[in-house]
Amino acid sequence: MDMLTLHAYAKINLALDVLYKRADGYHEVTMVMQAVRLADTITLVDQPHDIELSVSIPGLPADSGNLAYRAAALLKSYAASQQGAHIRLDKRIPLAAGLAGGSADAAAVLKGLNTLWGLNLGLDKLSKLAAQLGSDVPFCLFNGTMQATGRGELLEPLPPLKPCYVVLAKPAIAVSTSWVYQNFNPGKVTVRPDIRAMRTCLAQGNLAGVAQNLVNVLESVTIPAYPEIAKIKESMLTYGAMAALMSGSGPTVFGLTSCQEQAQDIACRLQAEGVPEIFVAETVSKVE
């Protein structure tokens, strides 16, 4: 095998709670994370020695400023491998969106090069390497539906979300994850997620119950600074979404729908309102 192509799936947060700031500077979190079929495409070509990265959009780093490149360099160093690779990254997941696009790319590179280079590292070892790259990277190795704790790297598989369609809408803003966490104030949080209730609804295949329990405490930081996020949430609900929530640190908003036709209708209405980036994606129910 000298070439391999993988899909790097985006994620949304069905629930996100920030518990406290840890001594190491990270925040202790508990989240329910869900993969969706909005994906970047990673093509890996084996070559001697060097790691090279090419990207499909201007302005995206093609060196150590890109998590995909750093993932390859980390794996090469860990394995003391003399092999290299050319990585082709075709972006579809929007940047700085709260959808873990960079983390998904890094996870795909770790999985792909592990295969391409014949390293035969297990997922436990890859997960430890992934955690060195970013808190969302371990989840992106597995996809599916999982509860994440610690700083996001400790994972527990959950019963899969009942298959549904998700409308993803990103306003024309970029939000810094570090800025959001630095400005998080627990005193401004009015509602916290009920993770136990969410887990119960997932186990029962109760999509309406999952929708009723969508909560993200980081909205308390991002929405006051960017009120257009609240406007998109309101529009999604008006147009028939079961529920709407900001994903991660934002600014992307997702709405849950039970069928593709309704999701497409909501997407068309949001497009008419002028929302610049809109996607419709099915959930990924299988841990891959």
Rank of each mutant, 00 (worst) to 15 (best):
Y9R: 03
Q262T: 15
C259K: 11
Y165G: 07
L141C: 00
P160G: 09
A225C: 01
A72R: 01
S285H: 14
V215C: 08
A131K: 04
A73C: 11
K111E: 12
K91S: 11
A85G: 06
L60F: 15
D63F: 09
Y239P: 01
V284F: 07
Q182A: 14
T145H: 07
V280S: 06
Q271V: 00
Q47N: 11
V180M: 12
T115A: 06
N213I: 02
N216S: 01
S64R: 15
R269A: 07
S285L: 15
G65Y: 05
L126E: 07
M31I: 01
P251N: 10
P48N: 00
E28P: 03
T222W: 01
L95S: 12
L38T: 14
L161G: 10
E282F: 05
T149C: 10
M242V: 07
P251R: 02
Q47K: 14
P61W: 04
G101P: 04
R269N: 09
K128T: 14
A71G: 13
A281N: 15
V210I: 04
A169H: 06
T43D: 00
C268R: 15
P227Y: 03
V36I: 15
L75N: 08
D2W: 05
L67H: 01
N185Q: 14
A8E: 03
M236N: 10
M1C: 05
V109K: 03
W179F: 06
M236E: 08
Q34F: 14
S220W: 03
T5D: 10
V175H: 06
S176H: 12
M198P: 00
Y20G: 01
T190Y: 12
H86D: 11
C164V: 05
S54H: 09
P227D: 02
A130P: 11
P61V: 04
P186W: 04
I173S: 09
F254T: 12
G25H: 07
T43Q: 09
H49R: 13
Q260A: 14
